[in-house]
Design a binder for these strands. Sequence first.
DNA 1: CTGCCAGTAGACCGACCGGTCTATTATATT
DNA 2: AATATAATAGACCGGTCGGTCTACTGGCAG
Lengths: 180, 180
Amino acid sequence: MTDMRTKLAIEAGYLFQKKGYNGTGISEILAKVGVPKGSLYHYFPNGKSDLALAAAEIATAEVLRIIDASFANAKDYSDGVTTFCYKLAKYFDIHKGDIGCPVSATLHGGPDNAIFKSALDKTFTQWMDRLAAYATQLGQNEKDAMFNAQRLFLSLEGAWTLARARRDSDVIRELPAFVT
Amino acid sequence: MTDMRTKLAIEAGYLFQKKGYNGTGISEILAKVGVPKGSLYHYFPNGKSDLALAAAEIATAEVLRIIDASFANAKDYSDGVTTFCYKLAKYFDIHKGDIGCPVSATLHGGPDNAIFKSALDKTFTQWMDRLAAYATQLGQNEKDAMFNAQRLFLSLEGAWTLARARRDSDVIRELPAFVT
DNA sequence: CTGCCAGTAGACCGACCGGTCTATTATATT
DNA sequence: AATATAATAGACCGGTCGGTCTACTGGCAG
């Protein structure tokens, strides 16, 4: 079983994605995990903000894993993108369409802390770099690869926003038509 | 001078864009406008949520005005898009890069109220329809027009998110390269 | 002048916020 | 068994939240 620190961060991340940083109370997270306050501040001495950073880190890695899984057996870039969007749409649906981009929902709206902003920037860059790496690996020159990766990322963030407003993941699934 | 109701909604909207619905306190809005609580609940008997809906309505209309202004003298669709992105980047910069999409920042993270979600959806649809109308007017067939409008919108929401994380509006200004 | 009412003003409310603190229990080490 | 440390448990804190309520003010209508 995952250790308690991870368990807390995962549950916190899920709630942040759904209701945002300010919309999620410490006590709510605690209740979901079934843990008293003492434990939280034992694992996260700096409290809520550390919890959010840890949650964002986990979500960042999770999306990277999804990218890897999507491109593992991809015939070409377009194929990988399609699988990727399908997987994200499924993730969206699992949570009943009431969930934002795992990382931006968590870190935006938090303390206007520069740390939060730069963590967000770093995450986005990591995602785009990983996508670009697969594009390169699948035959694109570096310039095209970066261009396509950025275009995918930008559209994806928008698609996620629109999907949430509509409570309908179709726009995420249809994304490949817009970016390939 | 604008009436007090509008004044309250505008200031509230600005704060919601910056810190989100849950991150903005009633008292903070009141302090900025210089008005006591009694007045707020006189103009908005349902309190904060009504204030947010009014703010979103104003922001929705404002973006439509920006679209109109961008396409008023546009030679072609690409030209209008470029002007539009430029104007939005400027708007972003005016607020020191610490501001989200005027409407989604206000309505996401609010009460999970269906009214909020559907208002958000309606706003997005209005924006895309308006963009598509200009695309049609400038020579595109209806299918292409809707396709391009949606692609622009999706990328724009993403670009705004990325710009905010980076505190740099360049990605918004460079958007036309991705969607035309 | 009188009565009415939109609007102003802010004290006040219970609920909840994030965070601290002390006490207790489980676990590992010697 | 004795001790140290990790972890649990939750009472408690001051502050702030959104919202209600009463009192007052100013201008307009009769």
